[in-house]
Design a protein around this nucleic acid. Structure first.
Lengths: 328, 328
DNA sequence: TTGTACGCGTTATCAA
DNA sequence: TTGATAACGCGTACAA
């Protein structure tokens, strides 16, 4: 009873089942031949002993890795401080837990897409989940990683995509503004290099064009500070604007802050919408009208695809759903 | 050039340095004897080859683990969805990265403190960072984990604590309210089982007693919903209250929401303060007066203590600093 | 269908 | 001070 409780090894299981380690391994890994009888005995023994394979040993022999790396593309390492990234990391961690794997966080500089090769060369890396990735990064991914990479955002022939229907979401938001009487709708865009942001801009342009509304675009970068600056720019260039579409909730909050500071009523004078539905979008005053995205679900799906190594469709789209609150 | 780029192993380094694997290991691990000459040659070779030890192999032979587990105590697994937890996870991940380790997320049920033993038994666990831990959990930690556990919150003889000076922070907040003329100050507490919340309550009681103010305590649980309910309770029991101290920012936002819904001016009629300074506390209207905490720094310190295995003081306190904004 | 034997990269033990 | 060598737990050719 006082003996140190060494976790059961494959050897223990094999011994208890009366077979060789090799047979036990084949049964548990589900690969190779094994008689039904042996199969049964091994499974029972493993269950009884509470056997769990040692990921370190497995990683060592297979060179398969024991870490799932969440790799974030961005211009600076500060992208790793983003709450959204942390949320994805958390979801991945929960998927990894039952496999005995850990997760890691890695910055992929926008300017040197080849950096991803270093990840691929690291034998301790079991898989990679890409965030905010670019085509440059996707192109640099070596074939060796095939089946062990997934992207939250755009994908490629090698990399399955798990993405939000940004275009659809933006469309829903803009249509909603139109439906509630707004006719001079401006948009604060996301960073130019991010293609998912491009889809939002595309949707916006399409709708205003079809409805013969003026196109009013101001560059942004998802930050609240830039939102403030953008709002000022909008006010100066087009004083009659009656709605501003933010490309992120932080952007929208920055916009609202500046507007109210200038005595502009929200949503009375100008409606403002966000994008993403961060936890506090519901708590602000006025509560933010925005589009909500199943971030945890998406991250879970991406991580699962990487860990299961089963064939997945090249692109899985997740809905972006309008959340009507007060601001717009 | 087309050869697959196998990462350098210890063997490669030893070969390049003209010594045996054993010597190279001793030099690189910093343990055991080695002549200055050999030391030099090995280090140079390792640098040139860009050698990094394979954590899987190391974990296998030492049984030391390749994952840092962030273990969160709470009544339900949903505590793992908390943005604060994710932030700690992110900080730990950044500390782990250079060591080639991954991080994992684990729920420790409040009701069964012994659960932590399962973590200790898992050989793949290199270390544990505790969040919101209880004395029950601390007591259940086996000695085997000594030096590989750190706690963000309370500690024990075995477990060094990395904590925010909650008492000091709450004191600063309440004193600030007093200094700005508030005399009937209520407090919405945190969950009872969390001892760090207890320190805040203690600080509050001490101050109101010393200043001969009425003590007005309402139980909370850090959530915005509970904040709303608590605010209603305060309004009913003590209608002349002129300040409400929230034990978290979410609580404060819930309080503000209900107050404004009832036509109570914030901070005109009632001042409201939060605690933690979450990213959006600065963006709400009115912007939240709160206490800010270096969460990332704290998590980094805790993770570093676990990974470095160097002796650390039993308790390291981090300051809680008042942030004066608009709400109080 | 099963078992033997080797290798994965590292650390630890021991003899030289 | 150094270098063989034996583990660590697992997967897998290869032989039986």
């Amino acid at each position: 009873m006082a003996t140190t409780h060494r976790p059961p090894t494959l050897e223990d299981v094999a011994l208890a089942a009366g077979v060789s380690r090799a047979t036990a391994s084949r049964v548990l890994a589900g690969t190779g031949y094994a008689s039904p009888a042996a199969r049964e005995r091994v499974n029972v023994a493993a269950d009884r002993l509470g056997y769990a394979p040692n990921p370190a040993a497995r990683a060592l022999v297979q060179g398969t890795g024991f870490r799932l790396v969440v790799a974030v593309t961005g211009t600076a390492a500060t992208v790793l401080d983003d709450p959204y990234v942390h949320r994805v990391l958390g979801a991945c961690a929960r998927v990894c837990a039952p496999h005995g794997l850990g997760v890691a966080l890695h910055w992929l500089p926008t300017r040197s897409p080849g950096e991803v090769r270093r990840l691929a060369a690291d034998r301790s890396v079991g898989g990679v989940v890409l965030i905010n990735t670019t085509e440059g990064v996707l192109d640099a991914i070596p074939a060796r990683l095939r089946g062990r990479v997934a992207s939250i955002g755009i994908g490629s022939a090698l990399v399955p995509a798990f993405d939000v229907d940004n275009g659809g979401g933006t469309e829903a938001v803009v249509r909603h503004l139109y439906a509630t009487g707004r006719r001079r709708i401006a948009m604060v865009t996301g960073p130019r290099w991010l293609s998912c942001a491009g889809r939002s801009v595309g949707a916006y342009r399409r709708i205003v064009r079809d409805a013969a509304l003026p196109e009013r675009l101001v560059p942004g970068d998802f930050s609240a500070d830039r939102g403030r600056a953008a709002a000022r720019e909008v006010l100066e260039r087009w004083p009659d604007t009656d709605a501003i579409v933010g490309s992120s909730d932080a952007t929208a909050l920055g916009v609202i802050d500046l507007l109210r500071g200038d005595g502009v009523q929200v949503p009375g004078d100008v409606a403002v919408t966000g994008f993403d539905d961060i936890p506090l979008a519901a708590m602000t005053t006025p509560a933010l009208t925005t589009a909500t995205h199943p971030v945890t679900q998406i991250a879970t799906a991406a991580a699962t695809a990487v860990l299961d190594r089963r064939p997945v469709p090249p692109a899985t789209m997740f809905p972006s759903r309008l959340v009507r609150r007060v601001s717009g």
